[in-house]
């Protein structure tokens, strides 16, 4: 488990180099990614993969929004590296392999599962970011 938490951290940290995140924010981006991956792994054992990535996406989006406000950065700086570990890359790869082996029944099942997982991540981000947007807009109007 410790290895997995570290892998999530390293994954998000190194992807922040690939996407050229500002140098001073990379450690935070790594921490957000590690948190998301840990949540999705722990929830997977309890309530299934979809619930896992959905909860993880919510946690990642909340952390990104809070960090963005605290550290006065665009949300994308933390959100993009943070969600990278949640991207269903493994499922997508298996889908591709099944299509290649002309195992269409498995392939379509995996494809649907990949789409659902990507949708769960998107839903988590949408719900969180819209909530934050309502909050910041009312604050803006009051000023």
């Amino acid at each position: 488990m410790v290895t997995q938490i570290l892998a999530g951290f390293v994954g998000a940290l190194t992807f922040s180099y690939i996407y050229r995140v500002p140098a001073s924010q990379r450690m935070y981006a790594g921490a957000v990614g590690s948190l998301g991956w840990t949540i999705s792994l722990s929830a997977r054992q309890g309530g299934g993969e979809l619930l896992g990535v959905f909860l993880a996406a919510i946690a990642v989006a909340v952390c990104s929004e809070v960090l963005a406000r605290r550290r006065q950065q665009p949300v994308l700086v933390f959100l993009i590296p943070g969600v990278i570990p949640l991207v269903p890359g493994g499922k997508a790869y298996l889908t591709m392999l099944s299509f290649l082996q002309q195992d269409y029944v498995d392939a379509v099942g995996l494809l649907v599962s990949t789409i659902l997982m990507a949708g769960a991540v998107a839903a988590g981000i949408i719900i969180t970011s819209s909530t934050f947007r309502v909050y910041s807009r009312t604050k803006y109007l009051r000023r």
């Binding site: 992807f15 994308l76 959100l79 993009i80 991207v87 790869y93 949408i126 970011s129 819209s130």
Partner: peptide, 24 residues
């Protein structure tokens, strides 16, 4: 190994901004 290596090509920025654009 292949899966890990091709992940560096994942369109992370396009995916995330697409979601954020849609929600706004």
């Amino acid at each position: 190994i292949t899966l890990g290596a091709v992940m560096v090509l994942a369109p992370g920025v396009a995916m995330t901004t697409a979601i954020r654009d849609l929600l706004s």
